[in-house]
Design a protein around this nucleic acid. Structure first.
Lengths: 197, 197
DNA sequence: ATTTTTAGTTAACGGCGTTAATATGCCTGA
DNA sequence: TCAGGCATATTAACGCCGTTAACTAAAAAT
């Protein structure tokens, strides 16, 4: 039956439309203004149809969060194939992190529950974040083969450095232009990566 | 008139009660469950009385945020009088930052709009945060007297390092015990401060 | 042709921030 | 002393919110 396939396709499109609309509203008005009713209005449906696709608003947010981590994972894997030198590789991954946060701030916000985005689903149990963790940990390991404990610690420090600079850059973007923050980010991350060996 | 003073005193108490109740609920149930009606219930009043003390929920949150930065400023000033060595001083200030974030997580959350706390009042125009900035910048300057631009940059890096580690420690607290994170925090901040000279 | 399933709606519940209208008691001036 | 005004607090209401139940109309299956 072709009709079944077509239905599944439009269903997939509606689902994607819901996710995209949520992100659009969040970008324009902030996550605090994202409501099920507004999403439904934008896709020209009534509110309850959203629940045919997502059991709750929280699950919708969780999906967006996981999309974000999936995007990062895919980009990281792409870079792994692109760069042989682990120092260069980890630096490029750092830059992707910055790029992602600046180009899709509403995704970064929901991934870290910032600025009105509040996803109650536990972030630590997300399979997507775990696979991101694994990739970066493996890169650090090929860089400096130490104990798993040491690797985890270095990863934690790398992640915290990146996340701290990104969050603070966004917070202070009206005092300190993003170009200036980006330069500091690049230099700091380069220094961090250099310091690993 | 003594009666006027007494009234002002009880008014001050009610005001403080509102702020404390908001923080209590936030600590127990998270900022997403803090509502004007719940606060009013807890202090045994009806909801509209809260508006005799705070023009809006946002202003209430802004007040809590500024209380947080005032607390930090006072603690920093205390430490300035306590330690002569700027290296030791900046390290101790870093430790206060950690202590504060762990002992009053709900305040730290509203200060940085994390985890359901969403204060729309612009953080960059807060007088309290500016005075905190000044204090730490002055300390760094007595440490290494460079241009104002360099100082601002070093301050930015110090702040981002601290904030990144604190935020990520909270995020991953179920995977990595806070004691482990605290040790990494101490060592990282010590290394940062050492690296300044 | 009739029944069943699907796709979508409207209506409703309890809770939210916020404001207007209303009640209650206290102080003051005639 | 008591009428009137002010301070204090309440209830009621508005338009949102997330979410669920009840309902309708069209399509599909029998």
């Amino acid at each position: 039956m072709e009709v079944v396939e077509r239905k599944q396709r439009t269903r997939e499109q509606t689902r994607a439309g819901i996710l995209q609309t949520a992100k659009d509203i969040a970008r324009r008005e902030g996550w605090q203004s994202v409501s099920i009713r507004k999403i439904a209005d934008a896709i020209e449906y009534s509110a309850p149809v959203v629940y045919d696709y997502f059991d709750s608003k929280d699950i919708l947010l969780d999906e967006i969060r996981n999309d974000g981590f999936r995007y990062l994972r895919d980009e990281y894997e792409r870079l792994v194939r692109l760069y042989r030198d682990p120092e260069k590789l980890l630096y490029e991954i750092s830059l992707i992190q910055w790029q992602f946060a600046m180009q899709q701030p509403e995704m970064y916000q929901v991934m870290y529950n910032q600025n009105g985005a509040n996803c109650l689903a536990p972030i630590e149990e997300s399979a997507e974040i775990k696979s991101v963790n694994e990739i970066v940990c493996r890169i650090i390991f090929t860089f400096i083969p130490k104990s798993a404990e040491s690797i985890r610690r270095l990863y934690f420090e790398w992640w915290a450095t990146s996340h701290g600079l990104i969050s603070l850059s966004a917070l202070l973007r009206h005092q300190q232009p993003l170009e200036a923050s980006e330069q500091i980010y690049r230099e700091t991350m380069r220094r961090f990566v250099r310091g690993l060996k």
